[in-house]
Amino acid sequence: MNVLALESLDLAALLCSRVCHDVISPVGAIVNGLEVLEEDKDEGMREFAMDLIRKSARTASARLQFCRLAFGAAGSAGASIDTGDAEKVARGLIADDRTQFNWTSPRAFMPKNKVKLALNLCLIASACIPRGGVMNVVIEGEGADVRISVAVKGPNLKLASHVADLLEGRSESGTVDAHGIQPYFTGLVARSCDMEVQVLATSEEVTLKAAPKAA
């Protein structure tokens, strides 16, 4: 198993590709809806287009707000982030009519990289339940003893085989693409917090746990 060591420019480019991939679908749907409004005079189709535009705009906004906290600077170096804001953007991205989202955490200001770690673990976990399900996020402890758990259950539950290795900064091929950059980035964030991520996967539940590194 090869240890990955990406150049900073490659990491930035791959993360940008990932964010663009997440946002381009709802933005494209907005464009399609606007084209229908311009070209179709049928009231039923126009109402359908307006509904598509409204839903897609909400989706695009939710994804951008999430990415701002999960991937962006979100303040100056050393800044803290309100866990209530983190819950809001995670709920906006993940909770829908197919997915029940539960967040258990005292509201507090937490170092930004620990908040980014929690949000990125949510993103990995959400990919395990493509048809929806239940996500339970628990953040407990304070200071250097913060612990994060994200557990998911649902139909078609599956954890991609490369996730655990990429979280540890390793890759069988020695490379990573835009599809795998997010778990690799999550591992970088965890190590920046002096934390490690444990992956527990069964046929019924996938749990990602982040805790301080053992002395």
Score class of each variant (00 low, 15 high):
Ala211Gln: 12
Ala62Asn: 15
Val150Phe: 00
Leu15His: 03
Ala164Leu: 01
Ser61Asp: 12
Gln182Asn: 10
Ser105Tyr: 09
Lys158Gln: 06
Leu121Asn: 09
Ala108Asp: 14
Gly187Asp: 06
Ala164Tyr: 02
Ala49Met: 08
Asn113Pro: 00
Leu4Gln: 13
Leu9Met: 03
Leu200Asn: 14
Ile53Pro: 13
Leu64Ser: 07
Leu119Ser: 05
Asp177Glu: 06
Leu123Trp: 08
Ala29Glu: 09
Gly169Arg: 08
Arg46Asn: 04
Val199Leu: 11
Thr175Cys: 09
Leu34Tyr: 03
Asp42Leu: 08
Gly169Leu: 03
Gly133Thr: 14
Ile139Ala: 01
Pro111Ala: 09
Val163Ala: 04
Pro130Glu: 05
Glu43Ser: 13
Gly28Phe: 06
Glu43Cys: 10
Pro26Lys: 07
Val163Ile: 15
Leu208Gln: 07
Asp177Tyr: 07
Arg58Gly: 00
Lys213Pro: 06
Phe71Ser: 03
Asp97Val: 03
Asp85Phe: 07
Gly33Tyr: 01
Ala178Arg: 01
Ser192Leu: 01
Ser17Gly: 11
Asp82Thr: 07
Arg147Gly: 04
Arg54Leu: 09
Tyr184Arg: 09
Phe48Ala: 15
Gly187Gln: 05
Val134Asn: 04
Ala12Asn: 12
Ser76Glu: 15
Ala127His: 11
Glu205Tyr: 10
Glu168His: 08
Leu159Val: 04
Leu117Glu: 12
Tyr184Ala: 08
Asp40Glu: 08
Glu39Cys: 10
Glu35Arg: 12
Ala70Asn: 10
Arg54Ala: 11
Leu9Trp: 02
Ala127Asn: 14
Ala77Leu: 10
Ala62Asp: 14
Val23Tyr: 01
Arg191Phe: 10
Leu157Cys: 07
Arg170Thr: 06
Pro183Cys: 05
Gly143Cys: 04
Pro26Met: 11
Pro26Asn: 08
Ile148Glu: 03
Glu35Cys: 01
Phe48Trp: 09
Cys122Lys: 01
Ser25Val: 15
Thr207Ser: 12
Ala13Tyr: 01
Gly84Pro: 06
Met45Glu: 05
His21Asp: 14
Gly143Leu: 05
Ala74Asp: 07
Ala178Ile: 00
Gly28Asp: 09
Pro212Ala: 12
Ala49Glu: 02
Leu157Pro: 04
Arg170Gln: 10
Ala70Cys: 09
Arg107Lys: 08
Val134Cys: 02
Leu14Thr: 11
Ser105Gln: 13
Ala214Phe: 15
Gly72Arg: 04
Val152Phe: 01
Gly143Arg: 09
Asn2Val: 03
